[in-house]
């Protein structure tokens, strides 16, 4: 491993989810988060997982990240079962989860420090490369509390990209941002995805966001979490969240979403 191979995107990962089930024991009793879910994701595909809260989409993401294990079934990354977290799969959360005791550069370097065979100077170069990629080179040495919400998510994105993962897992990363910042980030994430060619799994409960970003939108229903429908979004990139073509896709998905909600179903945000 050297700096040259670090800056070239690693080939994207192929992901196969086979009959995965997962339950949690809560104070209300046993909750089935995922029930026999199967899905396969092609190399370099941008897949959005949509569904109301409680449909297990975040649980699925955690299992792909290796933070949790399925009760039954298996998840294969390039044919190998996922046994734990690894630098080829990086995750972004709704909160930036940046470390306040490190500056921007330190945060982006965190994952790089865990990669062996790199010199510290090389790690710094790689980190600077990704900080530039998200447009924050002026803030390399800023402290986390000095950044706006959108900037924090950019740093979190740079931190996730820096170890050169092959798969990016995003758990509602833009949900807490204002509309303007979000639209900018929709453009940026599409640019970065085109340029860096990653497989991306993106969890959201915003249907329009899903239609804007995904090659495919996977619709989940809750209690127990199941995949109900899959939609191919055939629109050219980069897509604009406000475009009319996109609206027809999102209204189709919204209709399906309402159909699959149980009569007593929960409220769906937007």
């Amino acid at each position: 491993m050297s700096i040259d191979t670090e800056l070239v995107s690693a080939p994207p990962e192929k992901l196969v989810i086979e009959k995965v089930s997962k339950h949690f024991d809560t104070s209300q009793g046993k909750v089935i988060a995922l029930d026999n879910v199967s899905l396969s994701v092609r190399e370099g595909e941008f897949v959005c997982l949509v569904g109301p809260s409680g449909c297990g989409k975040s649980t699925l993401l955690n299992m792909i990240a290796g933070l949790e294990m399925p009760d039954s079934g298996q998840i294969l990354a390039d044919g190998n079962a996922i046994k734990g977290p690894g630098s080829e799969r990086m995750m972004m959360f709704q909160e930036s989860a940046l470390f306040p005791w490190l500056d921007v550069l330190g945060n982006v370097m965190f994952g790089l420090r865990l990669k062996p065979n790199l010199k510290d100077a090389e790690r710094r170069d790689v980190a600077r490369f990704y900080i530039k990629l998200v447009g924050l080179e002026k803030f390399t040495h800023s402290n986390v509390h000095e950044l706006s919400g959108g900037m924090k998510q950019r740093v979190a994105l740079a931190r996730a990209l820096a170890p050169n993962p092959r798969l990016l897992l995003m758990d509602e990363p833009f949900a807490a941002l204002d509309a303007m910042t979000r639209e900018q980030l929709y453009r940026d994430i599409q640019d970065i995805w085109t340029e860096r060619k990653k497989t991306i799994l993106f969890v959201t409960h915003n249907v329009r966001e899903a239609a804007c970003l995904g090659d495919r939108v996977i619709l989940f229903s809750p209690h127990p979490g199941r995949i109900q429908e899959k939609f191919d979004v055939r629109l050219p990139r980069n897509r604009d969240i406000n475009s009319v073509d996109l609206a027809s896709y999102s209204s189709e998905i919204t209709k399906a979403l309402k159909r699959h909600l149980r009569p007593a179903g929960e409220e769906v945000a937007k």
Binding site: G66, L67, P85, G86, S87, M91, F110, L114, K115, R159
Partner: peptide
């Protein structure tokens, strides 16, 4: 310590003593 720090660090490959 917010659990999210722990989770974020784990996904980046940090574990145990680190």
């Amino acid at each position: 310590v917010p659990p999210i720090y722990y989770r974020a660090a784990r996904t980046m490959g940090s574990d145990g003593f680190h």
